[in-house]
Amino acid sequence: MEPAELQDAVALLTSAYERHEPIDPLVKTFPDATIEDAYRVQQEQVRAWVAAGDVVRGHKVGLASAAMQRQMGVNQPDFGHLTSSMFLLEHQPIPTTRFLQPRIEPEIAFVLGEPLRGPGVTVADAVRAVDFVLPSLEIVDSRVRDWKISIFDTVADNASSGGVILGSSPTNLRDVDLRLAGCTLHVNGQLAATGAGGAVLGSPINALVWLANTVGPLGVTLEPGHVVLPGSMTAAQTVRPGDTVVATMAGLGSVTAVFAPEEDK
């Protein structure tokens, strides 16, 4: 992408946030753009958010399952940034109006105790760097109308990030096998989906290793205290005003997201 095209893509995504209206797929406007271009668009947005006072507090890994990679026609995950404004409190009403097209996914969140910087990060390095894990729910959202996204669209749109709800029961890695940790996702008391940690690149730890080795050459270090979401354990579920979503993970406990009722008009 030429510099002017990059700025045009950033402006389109910015308008979706500001006007609270989804846009047409970016890939239609920029058909020759590459994934590298998409990350440049993402990084330009993050720089603008930080300049406006937000703070990067972690990263997320997307497209972590083989099924999603096949759907997008790629052979590796993608990543996005998590900023402080995206973190929401468990059990506190979340207005769906702050999102455009929200869906929710259960994930095992890593909280780092030591820095990780690739390339060359191994599984042993990643395990040593993790302070503890938490059950979490990620709200994914797309600024592209009807979720009709290509790999370029989702990467440029900060990996379709929306919000994060962390549980409050920390668990040491030595106390749980993340590959075998099963998960149930209930929406309004009804079982909506099931999954396990092994659905995330064979183990969520592999996603953490991939992330560190991917962002390292870009000059990015995964910092102590940062949260890393490695990918969803189940299919994403659409959420609506008034919904209550509970993810329960074997050995890790549960996390609850409560969405505010729709306001009277």
Score class of each variant (00 low, 15 high):
4 A>S: 08
10 V>A: 08
11 A>D: 07
12 L>G: 02
14 T>Q: 04
15 S>V: 01
18 E>C: 06
21 E>W: 11
33 A>R: 00
34 T>I: 09
39 Y>K: 05
47 R>Q: 08
47 R>I: 01
48 A>Y: 09
48 A>G: 02
49 W>T: 09
51 A>W: 14
57 R>I: 11
59 H>E: 05
62 G>W: 09
70 R>V: 07
71 Q>W: 00
73 G>F: 00
81 H>F: 12
84 S>C: 11
86 M>Y: 15
86 M>S: 08
87 F>I: 05
87 F>T: 08
89 L>P: 12
90 E>D: 09
92 Q>S: 14
95 P>A: 15
95 P>V: 12
98 R>M: 07
99 F>C: 10
101 Q>G: 13
103 R>Y: 15
105 E>H: 04
107 E>Q: 12
111 V>K: 01
114 E>C: 09
127 V>I: 13
132 F>L: 05
137 L>T: 08
140 V>L: 11
141 D>M: 14
144 V>P: 02
147 W>K: 05
151 I>H: 01
151 I>V: 06
153 D>M: 13
153 D>P: 09
160 S>Y: 10
164 V>C: 09
166 L>W: 08
167 G>W: 02
187 V>Y: 10
191 L>E: 14
192 A>W: 11
193 A>E: 03
196 A>P: 15
196 A>Q: 12
197 G>V: 12
198 G>R: 02
203 S>A: 07
204 P>R: 08
207 A>F: 00
212 A>N: 01
213 N>D: 13
216 G>H: 03
219 G>C: 04
221 T>E: 02
230 P>A: 01
235 A>V: 15
236 A>M: 15
240 R>M: 07
242 G>E: 13
245 V>I: 02
246 V>G: 05
248 T>N: 08
251 G>Y: 02
251 G>K: 03
252 L>E: 11
263 E>H: 09
265 K>R: 07
